[in-house]
């Protein structure tokens, strides 16, 4: 199970260990996280009753265990849940933040899955940002489409997918501010997570649909927006196909656009430098590909995309290879217990 976790964690790639974040970056995210948690603690105290404490604890255990439920995707990799959007939609924003934060903290403490100093950043990425996306985006969408089955599916999918992307984006940002190369980190993280997000989306949708049809009374935050009769009916294959198709389009688009988003990585690094985040000079030439262009394409956005794609493909191949190796090692440990 141990190696299994690592293989999955590798593919997910969101738990930043210590050593990768510079101290100022880690500190800033500690401050942001503490702010968010303080707000959540206060609001939970105001809006919920004491019943929520055991509930939130058990829910954190549930998300933790839910992340173990995986399904084979392609040749040895597997899809599984991060759970932020699901927690937001099932439990509401404040409880969701606390639950997800507990999950990330426990992963760091128990598994060393994510560092101690990096807890601030990791909790923010996976516990605050994912829930915020799930809720801030989910609620208005629910108000509009909540009564319909496909509406719930779409909301579940989009919020789940975007929450993974948000976590990946923030993780990349923190790593880049800490001195890693934006031209590789951004495209790689976003490309990989565009696809991981699809798994997240599919699982979230199916879980939501199941809970809503079985125990709609449990999801108080959703209940007001749901048309129970419409949701009771099982979801047909064509809807799943459609939602997946839309999601895939989304993902492909994001992957293609991601190098553009960081098309001026020097600008980003200049910001970092001005803020004093980086002690090292960052006017580094991108020697992975001279001048960060593919010669015959010249200095065009197309060239940037091509160069970024090559970089992330190399990284992806490396990660994939390592995942396969780890999986091989884990196959016997997986069958025990």
């Amino acid at each position: 199970m141990n190696w299994q976790n690592i293989a999955d964690g590798l593919v997910l790639g969101l738990h930043i260990p210590d050593g990768f974040l510079s101290a100022p970056v880690a500190l800033i995210w500690w401050v942001l996280t503490i702010g968010a948690l303080a707000l959540a603690v206060q609001r939970v105290g105001v809006e919920l009753n004491e019943r929520q404490v055991p509930l939130m604890g058990v829910m954190a255990a549930f998300i933790f265990a839910g992340q173990m439920l995986n399904f084979p995707v392609l040749g040895g990799t597997s899809g599984h849940l991060l759970g932020g959007a699901l927690a937001a939609l099932l439990l509401g924003p404040w409880a969701g933040v606390l639950v997800m934060s507990a999950v990330v903290t426990l992963q760091a403490l128990l598994f060393q899955d994510g560092g101690l100093l990096a807890i601030g950043a990791n909790v923010f990425n996976m516990g605050v940002a994912t829930v915020a996306i799930g809720y801030l985006l989910g609620m208005p969408l629910l108000r509009t489409f909540g009564g319909k089955r496909w509406g719930l599916m779409l909301i579940g999918f989009i919020t789940a997918w975007l929450s993974v992307m948000a976590a990946a984006l923030l993780t990349s940002l923190q790593l880049v501010f800490s001195g890693l190369s934006a031209t590789v980190v951004f495209p790689a993280m976003i490309f990989v997570h565009a696809f991981i997000g699809i798994g997240e989306g599919l699982i979230t949708v199916a879980a939501l649909a199941f809970v809503v049809s079985t125990r709609p009374d449990l999801v108080s935050s959703l209940a007001g927006f749901l048309n129970k009769e419409a949701l009771q009916q099982p979801v047909d294959k064509r809807t799943i196909g459609l939602v997946t198709f839309v999601g895939l389009g989304f993902a492909a688009l994001a992957a293609l656009l991601s190098p553009l988003a960081s098309g001026d990585p020097d600008g980003l690094e200049r910001v970092a430098e001005n803020q004093g985040f980086l002690e090292r000079a960052m006017d580094a030439p991108y020697t992975i590909i001279p001048d960060y262009t593919v010669p015959f394409l010249g200095e065009t956005p197309l060239s940037t995309i091509a160069a970024g794609m090559i970089g992330l493909l190399i990284l992806f191949a490396l990660m994939y290879g390592l995942a396969l190796v780890l999986r091989g090692r884990s196959s016997d440990s997986r069958t025990r217990s």
């Binding site: 509930l55 058990v58 829910m59 439920l69 849940l81 879980a207 649909a209």
Partner: peptide, 28 residues
Amino acid sequence: SITWRAAVVGRMVGTLFIRAYERSERVY
């Protein structure tokens, strides 16, 4: 199909959620 496999896991997650919720009520 891959969507079917994902849906199966999603329902497992949903099942686990309901069991966890009910357990938390008993704990409370």
